[in-house]
Nucleic acid binder design. Structure first.
Lengths: 248, 248
DNA sequence: ACGTTTGTTTAGCATGAGAGAACAGGACCG
DNA sequence: CGGTCCTGTTCTCTCATGCTAAACAAACGT
């Protein structure tokens, strides 16, 4: 297929780089950006002008800031996602029933994107953010229902990068864990993504294809107790099943 | 200040045009985009490749689609907005108490952006979307607390474009309505934005600066009855006041 | 009032974005 | 099975264009 993900349009790259820089700095000036990015001031100014004209950036009394157009596009694409539409209300119920943080995760290439969340309390990944699939319970749940070939390709292509000292980085360990996840329909994460954060997840499988995962997570000290763990695991799994039915 | 909003970087413009086209079509192919935009296939391909490499677009079995990175940026910028942080929980209460759709709106240049909403049922403007300030109750509430000079500039610079046959398009009518809004701290909209959609709004004013507005809206047949209208107006206004206090 | 820092504008050159055609790879259909 | 269409991708060449550098303007703070 050839490498279709090469940066050929440099100008777009710098424009989006400016966007990300503005995002991280929560607004900035021309000189500040030019210094940070090692580009000339006039270049930065040109990009900012066009981004303003296109409505993605605005100049509020001196400093350039991102507009909320990203919110509109982000919300819109999410709203069109069938998994999100089906899961939205169920995630809410799940959060109520477990009295914990409930997430909806969907795969995007090699990443697990957190599309929706109810009951946020400083989760390590923000809504819209993503982690590599192997590094979170929801991601592992998705990976478990991909073909072994696909898993092999995933490992070879992207590797298993480490997030904490408990992240599974050995391919064989991963494969065996994926087998048991597939058997039980439940994946666990005890500090593999963030040292003091635990998680239970169950995949949403439609037509044999893992299109997402439901997860419940909490701080390490909140999620203790075998009974609680069993209970939430059951609720998570049945929520995923309900969503699956809605997607048929 | 010179015209700082000129499109000087054409490549960025076409890239973002592609993004918007992808958004509206909910994914598309190279040829489809090239035809629709009157650009060569290779150009479209180049832009798509770079957008993929940068993580804003992904190629899911043949068609190019937007990723959820927009959601991340959109959520992030919203989360950092102090007005949003202060208003979030109050909007929820307001929606419960009125049993209707409650919105948080913030100004962005000449537009009113709908930053947050609880109880959505096909509101004319999606979350993240915007309308010109004069065409919605929330926008008028904000406009009412800008200086008369600012209002004059607004009118002259952007004009008062019509959305329905009830939209206020006469500058003098607008000015007099803004005065009464400022007196009562309440703005109404009876089909000015969308023919069968009504709205009550109250501004959030901090340090004399209108930084946002709270609104409650509903279909024309839902929002009838003087008493209900009085009651919701009161609730909307007190919600705005509560948020103001939190922002000091 | 001055120097310092910002944003904006202007020239001019080298680069790189884009048009167009050729290439490749499936899907479909006879 | 071989054709004919579709796609998406690659190639080459060129002219436009995005970028640097330096000058300009404008707003601070001392």
């Amino acid at each position: 297929m050839g490498d279709t993900d090469t940066i050929t349009v440099q100008a777009t790259a710098t424009s989006l780089r400016i966007v990300e820089e503005l995002y991280e700095r929560d607004g900035a000036g021309v000189t500040e950006l030019a210094d940070a990015m090692d580009v000339s001031k006039s270049a930065v100014h040109n990009h900012l002008s066009t981004l303003c004209a296109l409505g993605y950036v605005t100049n509020v009394d001196g400093t350039y800031e991102l507009t909320h157009r990203f919110l509109r596009i982000g919300f819109g694409t999410r709203e069109r996602n069938p998994v999100y539409r089906a899961a939205q209300s169920e995630i809410r119920k799940l959060a109520r029933n477990t009295n914990a943080v409930a997430n909806l995760v969907v795969p995007e290439d090699a990443d697990a994107v957190y599309l929706h969340r109810i009951g946020a309390r400083n989760h390590p990944i923000p809504v819209g953010g993503s982690v590599r699939l192997h590094a979170a319970a929801a991601g592992k749940a998705i990976l478990a229902f991909r073909s072994t070939d696909a898993v092999d390709e995933y490992v070879e292509r992207h590797g298993l990068d480490r997030k904490t000292d408990r992240t599974v980085t050995d391919p064989e360990t991963l494969r065996s864990e994926l087998r048991s996840i597939r058997d039980r329909n439940i994946a666990f994460d005890r500090g593999e993504l963030d040292a003091n954060w635990q998680c239970v997840a169950s995949p949403i499988v439609v037509d044999g294809d893992p299109v997402g995962a439901v997860s419940v997570s909490g701080a390490a000290d909140e999620m203790q107790g075998k009974r609680l763990e069993e209970d939430t695991a059951g609720l998570v799994s049945s929520t995923a099943k309900t969503i699956e039915l809605e997607l048929l």
